[in-house]
């Protein structure tokens, strides 16, 4: 008996799963090791080793879908012309590409950004902040991505 689905329709269905999930299923996709992630963080801070503190990263403890995980990252620091937060980098160690986003600030408003990110699997997400004095600060949050949330 012929399949009720045409190949074209099946192709469409296969293409539909959210990209974040497909990341987890992509064969041969290299996952960054912790050491590589540390190195990536160091490159982003221009060699300054991040200390724990100052950075706040809000993420759900459990994400139903890795395709859309809301985050808010902020730094407890003034935004004065001579003393401010220059950048915040968001990294997801176990994504095929650990670098998620880099936000560059000027001394205005406050050092806070919200958005949505993709997680290929349960993992630790890290936010690294670089201040105008050259110091770097970081925090990490563990996020569990629900099994089956990828439709796999």
């Amino acid at each position: 008996m012929p399949s009720p689905q045409s190949p074209r329709r099946r192709a469409l269905i296969l293409a539909l799963p959210a990209a974040g999930c497909a990341l987890a299923l992509a064969p041969g996709a290299a996952l960054a090791s912790r050491a590589e992630a540390d190195e990536a963080a160091l490159r982003l801070t221009g060699g300054a080793r991040p200390k724990d503190g100052k950075v706040r990263l809000k993420l759900p403890e459990i994400a139903d879908s890795g395709a859309t995980v809301p985050f808010t990252v902020s730094v407890d620091h003034p935004m004065a012309p001579d003393n401010y937060v220059k950048a915040i980098h968001v990294l997801a160690h176990d994504n095929p590409a650990p670098q998620v986003a880099s936000f560059h600030f000027t001394p205005t408003g406050k050092a806070e950004v919200s958005g949505r990110l993709r997680l290929a699997r349960s993992q630790e997400v890290r936010a690294v902040a670089l201040l105008s004095d050259g110091s770097a600060w970081e925090t990490r949050r563990e996020v569990k991505v629900t099994v089956g949330g990828c439709g796999g």
Binding site: A101, G109, V113, R116, L117
Partner: peptide
């Protein structure tokens, strides 16, 4: 006043909320 470099780890339909003076 604000720049974001985005990578494939950002979800579809990217939305950003940020603050300026």
């Amino acid at each position: 006043v604000f720049t974001a470099e985005l990578h494939p780890g950002i979800s579809a339909n990217p939305g950003l909320t940020f603050y300026i003076t």
